Simulated scan of single mutants.
Amino acid sequence: MAVSGGYLIEFQRVGSIVRVSAIDPVTNTEVVIQGPATAGQETLSRAAVNKLRFVLARGQQGGPASSPRTR
Rank of each mutant, 00 (worst) to 15 (best):
Q12I: 07
E10F: 00
A2S: 12
F11S: 08
A47K: 05
T27E: 03
S4L: 10
G63Q: 08
G62R: 04
P68A: 09
P68T: 08
R46G: 09
R58K: 14
V18N: 04
A48G: 06
D24R: 03
E10S: 14
L52Q: 05
N50L: 13
Q34E: 15
V14G: 07
T29L: 09
Y7R: 00
M1C: 04
V32D: 01
A48E: 00
T43W: 03
A57K: 14
G59Y: 09
R71M: 08
R69S: 11
G40A: 02
G6V: 09
V18H: 02
V49R: 02
V49S: 01
G5E: 14
P36M: 13
V55Q: 08
S45L: 00
A2E: 15
G15S: 12
T29P: 00
Y7H: 06
F11G: 08
G35V: 07
F11K: 06
G40T: 05
F11V: 11
P64M: 05
V26T: 08
T29V: 15
Q60C: 02
R19K: 15
S21M: 11
I33P: 01
L44Y: 01
T38C: 04
V31M: 01
E10G: 04
V26C: 01
V14E: 15
S66G: 06
V26P: 06
S66K: 10
P64Y: 11
G5F: 01
S4K: 15
L44S: 04
L56P: 00
G35H: 05
G63V: 06
L52N: 02
S21L: 14
F11R: 08
G35Q: 05
V18T: 12
T27Q: 01
I33A: 06
I17Q: 13
T43M: 11
P25Y: 10
G62N: 05
I33S: 04
T29F: 02
A22Q: 01
P64S: 10
K51A: 12
V31P: 06
Q60M: 01
R53E: 12
A37I: 03
K51C: 05
R19W: 11
S66V: 02
L8T: 07
A37N: 11
N50W: 00
Q61H: 09
T70N: 07
R58P: 01
N50K: 12
